[in-house]
Amino acid sequence: MKATILEVFNTIIENRGNKKLESISPEMHLKYDIGFDSLDLAELTVRIEADYDIDIFEDGIVNTVGEILKKLEKK
């Protein structure tokens, strides 16, 4: 699952013309470590929803990679 999430992240990062990530870890912060802004986060929800059919931000903003993984594992 981590690999697919990394792929989704990198699609967003590459589309914005930034350098791809080599790996991700649960403690990474979406805004501070990965550098996502609110437009990126919005795109992230749509892409994850398309793959996993779950809206990760439904109950408020998720901050770290680990929180996303937890949400997806629950499903």
Partner: peptide, 22 residues
């Protein structure tokens, strides 16, 4: 969209050898 209310999307008909998403 749950973050921004809405998100802009588009569909394009294009010559794939000339254009990419990027």
């Amino acid at each position: 969209n749950s973050v921004l209310g809405n998100i802009v999307c588009c569909e394009v008909v294009a010559n794939r050898d000339q254009v990419t998403e990027i």
